[in-house]
Amino acid sequence: MTEEPQEITTLVGREVYSNDGVFVGQVEDLRLDVDGRTVTGLALTQLNYDLFNEQVNGSRGVILPYRWVRSVGDVILVNDIVERMHGTNGEEEPLAASH
């Protein structure tokens, strides 16, 4: 049985949680690589400011790299968001989104 590909617009409005069950935010938009036809980032709003307080600094939201996504279902799960937000794993931080 093959799985039908989902429309990328179905990601908009989904809630994002860490793999530990911590609410991260809600997908408002997507960052795309049009030439490569891939999603490269999730633009989140309605953020959990306990995670993002220092990073957003007055911005409307953040863009998480899509490679952080662990799974997509009724909600979107991302890996190790708490560690990434506090810079304990050496990975890049999310980008503040001011759009």
Rank of each mutant, 00 (worst) to 15 (best):
N89R: 13
E92G: 07
E7Q: 10
V69K: 08
V39S: 01
E28G: 06
N79S: 13
T40Y: 01
M1L: 15
I8F: 14
V75K: 03
G87A: 12
V62H: 02
I8W: 11
R67A: 10
V12D: 05
V24I: 12
V24N: 05
V24A: 08
L47T: 00
Q55W: 09
T45M: 03
H86E: 15
E54Y: 10
P94K: 12
N79M: 08
V12A: 13
E54R: 08
I76R: 10
N53I: 04
V62D: 04
M85E: 03
L42D: 14
L95V: 08
G87I: 05
R14S: 12
N19A: 07
G36L: 07
D50N: 14
S18G: 11
E3L: 12
V72H: 08
G58T: 00
N57Q: 09
V16M: 02
E92K: 04
G36W: 12
T9V: 15
A96M: 02
R31H: 14
A96V: 01
G41C: 07
R37T: 13
I63W: 03
D20K: 08
V75M: 02
Y49D: 03
V24T: 01
Q46G: 00
G41H: 06
L64C: 04
G58N: 04
G41N: 02
G61Q: 00
S71M: 02
Q55V: 14
V78Q: 09
G13H: 02
G58V: 10
E15W: 06
V12S: 05
L30K: 12
D50C: 11
V34E: 15
S59F: 05
V16A: 01
V62E: 08
L51H: 06
Q26S: 06
T10N: 03
E93F: 08
V69T: 11
Q55A: 10
T2A: 09
E3T: 03
Y66G: 14
Q6D: 13
V56D: 00
Q26H: 09
N19G: 10
V22H: 00
V82Y: 00
D35F: 04
E4G: 12
T88K: 11
V82W: 01
G13V: 12
V69G: 06
L95D: 11
V24Q: 02
V12H: 06
I63F: 04
Y17I: 05
I8N: 15
V75G: 05
E54M: 11
L47A: 00
R60D: 02
R14T: 13
G36P: 11
R14A: 06
V69R: 03
Q6L: 15
E28Q: 10
G73I: 11
S59N: 14
V24F: 04
F23Q: 06
T10Y: 07
N89S: 04
R70A: 07
G36E: 13
D80A: 14
V39C: 00
R70Q: 10
T10H: 06
